[in-house]
């Protein structure tokens, strides 16, 4: 039985984990390797590192982070943020990441999905989608540039297109739910998960363990990602997993 995956997400800027992380007992909470190891021990099934560096130097530093994480971690990890070309993918994957996540670049130049999939295989290529409900559209609209710019794409249409072009997985963030801690957007997650044949990671809105249960059972997600509730120790990966297990969800 394939288990549902729980994936903590770490924001990395200029080689350091940022966005208020409250860990007790870690020497240096900003060190990506130390935090990755911590989540690995807690039972995280995968990790996502989001590179939010603004500068070229920051992005170069990210390659070193990837190398150090890969040297320590024996679970899969994905790197996203600022990956625009096959060259960018090569740099990150050769440093030891297992997957790269494409967002804005995939929308601006969908061919980059195919290039990556042809070169590394679909299983290395995650397409991240930021979506927000649009009354006029009667569905969710896809946004680029961290949610700043609207596109013409309806979310399930874009997800299907991305998979057709070679995406092996979809990382779906609900802009309406993100940061609200009121639960994943179940209707959105279900719509996308039912539309594509590849696994879908639900993201945005996790506030408690039962939200993960809903994402899997009602949202039909294959994995669920969260940042702040893990970082702020509102719950832990281990707690979420034991809750899910008690309710009959297959977890590792």
């Amino acid at each position: 039985m394939l288990t549902k995956r729980i994936i903590p997400c770490l924001d990395v800027k200029d080689g350091r984990v940022v966005k208020g992380i409250q860990f007790v007992g870690l020497r240096d909470a900003g060190d990506p390797v130390e935090l990755a190891t911590f989540y690995d021990r807690e039972g995280a099934d995968e990790l996502v590192f989001l590179d939010i560096s603004a500068s070229h130097e920051g992005r170069q530093t990210m390659v070193d982070v990837v190398r150090n994480v890969a040297a320590t971690l024996a679970i899969p990890f994905t790197v996203g943020g600022g990956i625009n070309s096959l060259e960018d993918m090569k740099r990150i994957l050769r440093a030891g990441a297992d997957k790269v996540s494409l967002n804005t670049a995939a929308l601006l130049n969908p061919e980059v999905i195919t290039e990556g999939a042809n070169y590394f295989g679909s299983q290395c290529i995650v397409v991240a989608i930021d979506a927000k409900y649009d009354e006029g559209l009667g569905s969710w609209r896809v946004f680029t540039h961290g949610g700043r710019n609207a596109t013409d794409w309806e979310v399930t249409a874009w997800a299907k297109e991305a998979v057709l072009r070679g995406a092996g997985e979809i990382l779906l963030t609900s802009m309406d739910s993100d940061g609200e801690k009121s639960g994943f957007n179940l209707a959105l997650t279900k719509a996308v998960s039912s539309a594509v044949s590849v696994p879908v990671i639900a993201s945005g809105g996790a506030g408690s363990a039962d939200h993960f249960y809903d994402a899997f059972e009602e949202g039909k997600a294959d994995a669920a990602l969260a940042a702040s509730i893990f970082h702020y120790k509102e719950t832990s990966v281990a707690e979420v997993k034991s809750y899910l297990k008690a309710r009959g969800v297959a977890v590792r």
């Binding site: 995956r5 299983q123 590849v198 696994p199 590792r252």
Partner: peptide, 11 residues
């Protein structure tokens, strides 16, 4: 109705 690729942790 199972997703392909078979991706993730299995026993």
């Amino acid at each position: 109705n199972l997703k392909v690729p078979h991706m993730g942790w299995n026993k």
